[in-house]
Design a protein around this nucleic acid. Structure first.
Lengths: 172, 172
DNA sequence: GAGATATGTCAACAAGGCTGACTTAAAGTG
DNA sequence: CACTTTAAGTCAGCCTTGTTGACATATCTC
C-alpha cells in the first residue's frame, strides 16, 4: 500500500517544482489504470465486430443526441476520414442514425438507435462497475477529488467545453 | 465547475448500484484527461522519429534498470513481436542497451543509455508539469486520493505488482 | 541428453490513426 | 443573383502499433 505519499510542496531550490523529480507515481498509475479501464468493454465489442474507436463514437453520440459531425470530431480529435470509417459501420449496422439538420440542412445530426443505446449503456455499466468497486474501498470524498483532478488535467482552453459536455451545464 | 458532485451512496431499489445510472462523469473525464495527458510528449517524440510505443518502452526501462524482456511484456501487455519492433529501434538508435543476464544468460537485461535516460526524464518532466499544474489548483490531499483511486482501478491481481513497480516497495 | 524456457525473427494481417485532393449541397454575403 | 464559405462525404495511399502462427537459437533444469 502507498502509505506515505509525500504531500506536494515547494522544493528548497530557487527553480520551480518542474525542475525537480518527476511525478512517476501519478504518471505510471495513470497508465496502468487506463490500460485496465479501457480493456473491460473489449470482449463485448468483439462480439459485435466493433473496436474501441466504435465505442468512443457510440458513447458520445448516445450521451449527446443530435450531435453533429463537427462536434464529434472536436471531442475525439481525429480526422473526419478516420471518423467516417467507423461511423459508417455503426450506421450500416443500425447502431447510429444520421438525420439531416433542421435549422442547417448541411449538418448531420447523430442519434443512437435503440440497439445502439442498449450497447452504449451496457458498456458504460461495465466501466461503472470497475469505478464503483474502486470507490467502495476509499473515502467518500474521493470521487470529488478525482473529478476535479481529471478536469484540471485537461487543456485549459477545452476545460469549459468538457465541463459542459460531462456535467451538462445548461444554464439557459 | 463541478460544484455539486453527489456523494456515492446506495440506491433505493433492491438491486445494487451497478444496475443504476452509469458514472458518466468519471468515465468521460478519464477519457479527456488521458487524451490530453498522453499528447504532451508527442511533439518531442516526433523529433526523434519515435512514437508512443517507444515512449512506453523507454519509460519503463529507464525507471527499472535491468528489466528483462518478460517483465517488460508483462507491464505493457503486448506481444513480443510488437515489443521487439520498437525495442530494436531504441537499441539501434542507442537509447536502450541490452546486456546478457548474469545469473541466467538466456535473459536480456535492459538499460537506458545516457541519451535514453535524458529523453525519458525530459518526457516525464513534461507530463509532470501538467500534473503539478492540476494539483496546484486543488486541495493538498488530492494527490493521495487520486493515487489510491487509480491503484484501485487496476485489476486486483496486478495491483500488488504495480504497487511494487510504482512505489518500489523493496521490503528486503 | 531431453525437455522446458527466454528470446529473436519472418511473414502476413488488422485496426485505427494520418495526409492530400476532390465533390456535393447548403448557407451566408455582397 | 453570383460568389464564397462551410459541413460533410469520399477516394487513395501511407504509417504506427497491435495481432497470429510458425520456427530458430541459446541456455537452463532435471
Amino acid at each position: 500500500m502507498p502509505d506515505a505519499i509525500p504531500a506536494f510542496r515547494p522544493q528548497q531550490l530557487g527553480k520551480d517544482i518542474l525542475a525537480e523529480s518527476p511525478a512517476y507515481d501519478l504518471i505510471e498509475l495513470f497508465f496502468f489504470a487506463y490500460r485496465d479501464f479501457v480493456s473491460d468493454p473489449d470482449r463485448i465489442l468483439d462480439e459485435y465486430g466493433f473496436g474501441r474507436a466504435h465505442h468512443r463514437v457510440l458513447h458520445f453520440v448516445d450521451r449527446n443526441p443530435g450531435l453533429t459531425i463537427a462536434e464529434l470530431l472536436d471531442i475525439l480529435r481525429i480526422t473526419k476520414q478516420s471518423l467516417n470509417r467507423v461511423l459508417k459501420e455503426l450506421i450500416e449496422k443500425d447502431f447510429i442514425e444520421s438525420r439531416t439538420g433542421t435549422s442547417d440542412r448541411r449538418q448531420r445530426l447523430l442519434y443512437a438507435t435503440e440497439q445502439g443505446h442498449d450497447l452504449a449503456v451496457k458498456l458504460a455499466k461495465l466501466q461503472t462497475r470497475r469505478i464503483m468497486r474502486a470507490l467502495a474501498d476509499l473515502d467518500s470524498d474521493t470521487k470529488e477529488h478525482v473529478s476535479r483532478y481529471l478536469l484540471s488535467l485537461i487543456n485549459p482552453d477545452d476545460r469549459a467545453h468538457v465541463d459542459r459536455l460531462v456535467f451538462g451545464a445548461k444554464k439557459s
